[in-house]
C-alpha cells in the first residue's frame, strides 16, 4: 500500500489493481470470443446446411473434457479458498491438481485433433471444421496461457516472501477469474460445436 491511495481512498476505485486489471482484460476477451461466436453464427446462417456436431465430432471425449475443465475450475477456486486462509500446503495441492487437470484437457484435445487429422480432416475441409479448429485451437491457447500463469503462481508459493506479500492473494484471485472465464468459453463451445 502506498500513502497516496491509502490516505484518501475516495480517489481510488477501491477495487484492487490486479482485480480491476483482470476484469478489464476479461472484458477484451469477451469481445474477442463474441467476435468468434459471431463468425460462427454468420457462417452457419449463410450455409445451406450444417452438420450436427455429434455426427462430426467425438461427443464422449468432448464431454470428458467438459468435466475435466469444470473440475479444474473447482480446484482453482479451492486453491483460492486455501490461499485465503493462508493454508500453504492446501494451496499447493489444489493448484497442482488444477495444473494436472489442465494438462489432461490438452492431452484429450490432442487425441481428438490427432484422430481428425488421421482421417484427413483439417481446418480446410469445410467451414464447420474451420470454425471448430479455430475456436478450439484459440481456446487451447488460452488454456496454455492459464497453465503458464498457474505454474508461475505455484512456483511463487514456494518462495517465503510471497506469503508476506498482500498482493499474492489478489494474483491468485486474478488467475482464478481468468481460468473460470476460459471454462465459461468452453461451456458455450461444447454444445455449439459438439451437440447442436
Amino acid at each position: 500500500m502506498n500513502a497516496t491511495t491509502a490516505a484518501v481512498p475516495q480517489t481510488s476505485s477501491g477495487i484492487s489493481n490486479a482485480k480491476l486489471g483482470v476484469w478489464l482484460f476479461l472484458a477484451s476477451e469477451i469481445m474477442l470470443f463474441s467476435t468468434l461466436f459471431t463468425t460462427y453464427i454468420v457462417l452457419r446462417l449463410s450455409a445451406t446446411s450444417w452438420p450436427w456436431g455429434w455426427t462430426a465430432l467425438n461427443v464422449p471425449l468432448g464431454t470428458l473434457n467438459t468435466a475435466i475443465l469444470i473440475t479444474s475450475s473447482v480446484t482453482i477456486v479451492m486453491a483460492y479458498a486455501r490461499a485465503y486462509d493462508r493454508d500453504v500446503a492446501g494451496f499447493r495441492k489444489w493448484m497442482a491438481l488444477t495444473l494436472a487437470l489442465s494438462a489432461c484437457f490438452l492431452v484429450v484435445k490432442a487425441f481428438e485433433y490427432g484422430h481428425e487429422f488421421s482421417l484427413g480432416i483439417g481446418p480446410s475441409t469445410s467451414v464447420f471444421y474451420a470454425v471448430y479448429f479455430t475456436m478450439t485451437g484459440l481456446h487451447g491457447l488460452h488454456i496454455v496461457g492459464g497453465i503458464i500463469v498457474n505454474s508461475g503462481l505455484l512456483y511463487m508459493s514456494y518462495r517465503k516472501d510471497c506469503w508476506e506479500d498482500p498482493l499474492f492473494l489478489g494474483r491468485v484471485e486474478g488467475a482464478g477469474l481468468y481460468w473460470h472465464f476460459v471454462d465459461i468459453v468452453w461451456i458455450f463451445l461444447f454444445p455449439a460445436l459438439y451437440l447442436l
Binding site: T38, I41, V42, L43, L45, S46, A47, T48, S49, W50, P51, W52, T55, A56, T125, S126, V127, F128
Partner: peptide
C-alpha cells in the same frame, strides 16, 4: 453483422454448401 448475413442470404446466388462434405447429415 449477423443481421446483415441473415438479410443477405436470400439475394445471394452462390449459396454455400457445407453439405457437400456431410452427405450423411441429410442437410442437402
Amino acid at each position: 453483422p449477423i443481421l446483415d448475413g441473415a438479410f443477405l442470404v436470400p439475394s445471394a446466388t452462390s449459396r454455400v454448401a457445407v453439405a457437400d462434405q456431410h452427405p450423411d447429415e441429410g442437410g442437402a
